[in-house]
Design a protein around this nucleic acid. Structure first.
Lengths: 353, 353
DNA sequence: TTGTACGCGTTATCAC
DNA sequence: GTGATAACGCGTACAA
């Protein structure tokens, strides 16, 4: 057992209630204002060392915990930020959340998490509710390229950092994976295996990620001297399995020959797997597939999915750090960060026969 | 476009700050106290209908949002609860979280989420921090059978509901899946397929879930007239793949013949898959496996995992409802809830050859 | 260096 | 039915 203060206050308490600053001040024989100064590291130098010692000792024995609500009311700061994501059950987001919280926790901040389910109306109302809770900033993972609501908030001076995606307005700082390089790696991997007819199941063009990856795909294909055939690119309506499956069916029905797929993300690749099962296509023997993100348990799939690993935890951590920087120094110039990705080769890709 | 009030207040605002109750009162030509009564549904009957109308109209045009921090300071209620989970990246928890939030949101409550990483010290400090944020209650998913810290909190009158697991102290309300029935279903499924030598990879005996499922396993085996061979039960140190794999290796190394495994949960089953790959064992031809929980994407595994489906979203929702009930009426008798489970038969189980 | 006085935005308790 | 006032717990000018 470590000699930490016990969870229930060891000292006296007033009326069974948690002790307040006044209780501490009284116990230390000083005024509440003095106690406040002594307890707050940034104002501690204003009181004598001896007084500070006495106050801190009294606080400790009383088990005093400052009331963050009262503090927030006074300072109009909440030590709180809002985290706006589409859906927590998408395995993409938990690692980002943990990355964010690791950084916030160290700075005494906490995050309110809200799910929008990609519903703009719901997004608006959840963000309004976050703002009424006095969040000091927002980390937003639901950005669309054309996103007037976010733009408006940004103009109003709401501090925010986008993760994973961005808007057309580059003035809003964001942290994303290096999507273009990731797609280039995927294409090169397939080319190295001998593939020349490579298809792309693109994410929605309303998202920066969808557009950037699709553009990077066309560039990469051309860079390898292959034909940039638009019949080999199908856009998925959403980043999920169902739309990945639909897009795969459309691709197959176009009857344009291809031997490999670069999927916009892992869930879209999973949709392809479903269609392969439907139609008796064997992967990787007939068609190779590369995903994107490296979500958990991909190595247990049939076949284990080759994919591009994105440092989700780091994306969250960097975004949180960036947001705290913006809060600390509002004059700070907005930066955007591109985090490096790596190929993870498993068994869904094979040499062209 | 729906005719909702726009996000930035349409009316006048004072000093560019969000409007306060006083601004509304002034705009409506009444005192702040009257405005408060008019705006609060539970006190609205104290003011004249005409006044109420005027105040609410003023609030709407000003875009007034009550400041929850000021309200909390006055009422000593935070409309906030704490949610204590081991690790958000475990796919078990996101659906529970969403179930909780669906219920809370409807009641104007929100949840602070903390991750303990199964570290008791961290759990203590995170819960302390939640309490200092004035949460009105706790939903705890990290309960161990012997859990003195939770017991102490409960004795101190901290309102809490356990999810997914419980402590030895049955006075603490909890919401769990009907584990015993789930295991019985799994064993009967295997028996129906002709298996008679069935092993169990048990979860940690420090958790109620581990103990209940292991006990249910022995009962189920005996109920079918099979031998209750303790050499066929191995305990995993944690509910994860690595320990599932370790337990599987130990089971195989014991050289006691068996043809089927009931895993404590899906992750443990995934650990078995890893060992099958290591040792060239084919599933389900040589060994059938049943998981527990039905976490996402199990249908994409090689082979798709047969498992017991647990209604995680409902578990969260019921727990939230129960906690809100406890908060509303502290005299309420604590109840515990057992939610029904179902078998999901996929391809990791096959008839005994 | 320390104490006094006040206000943050809201609600409860008095009067009227 | 409505208004005045105090108070929740804290931080901070200002005064001493």
């Amino acid at each position: 057992m470590s000699p930490n203060q016990p969870s229930p206050p060891a000292g006296e308490v007033r009326r069974g209630q948690p002790p307040t600053l006044r209780d501490v001040a009284e116990a230390a024989g000083v005024h509440a204002a003095t106690a406040s100064r002594a307890l707050n590291p940034s104002t501690r130098r204003l009181v004598s060392a001896e007084t500070a010692r006495r106050v801190m000792k009294a606080a400790k024995t009383l088990g005093y915990q400052p009331n963050p609500i009262a503090r927030s009311l006074k300072t109009a700061k909440s030590s709180t930020i809002g985290l706006v994501i589409p859906d927590l059950t998408n395995p993409l987001f938990p690692p980002i959340v943990r990355g964010i919280e690791n950084v916030l926790e160290a700075e005494g901040y906490s995050a309110w998490i809200v799910n929008t389910d990609n519903d703009p109306e719901r997004e608006r109302s959840r963000i309004d509710s976050l703002r009424s809770r006095q969040v000091e900033g927002l980390i937003v993972a639901t950005a669309r390229l054309d996103h007037p609501f976010l733009e408006k908030l940004h103009e109003q001076g709401v501090k925010m950092v986008l993760v994973n995606r961005r808007t057309e307005n580059l003035a809003i700082p964001c942290v994303t994976a290096d999507d273009a390089t990731g797609i280039a790696l995927a294409v090169r991997h397939l080319v190295d295996l001998g593939h020349t007819r490579i298809a792309h199941l693109a994410g929605p063009h309303s998202t920066s990620t969808g557009v950037v990856r699709a553009r990077a795909f066309r560039h990469a294909v051309r860079d390898h001297g292959l034909e940039d055939d638009s019949r080999l690119i199908v856009e998925c309506a959403h980043w999920n399995e169902a739309d990945g499956a639909a897009a795969t069916r459309e691709l197959l029905d176009r009857a344009t020959p291809f031997t490999a797929i670069v999927a916009g993300n892992d869930l879209i690749a999973l949709g392809s797997y479903d269609v392969f099962a439907e139609r008796g296509i064997s992967c990787p023997e007939e068609i190779s597939v590369v995903g994107f993100n490296d979500m958990p348990y991909l190595d247990k799939l049939r076949p284990p999915l080759t994919t591009v690993r994105v440092p989700h935890h780091d994306i969250g951590a960097e975004a949180a750090r960036m947001l705290l920087d913006c809060i600390d120094d509002p004059t700070r110039h907005p930066r955007s960060l591109l985090l490096p990705v790596t190929m993870v080769v498993r068994a869904s890709t094979a040499p062209l026969r």
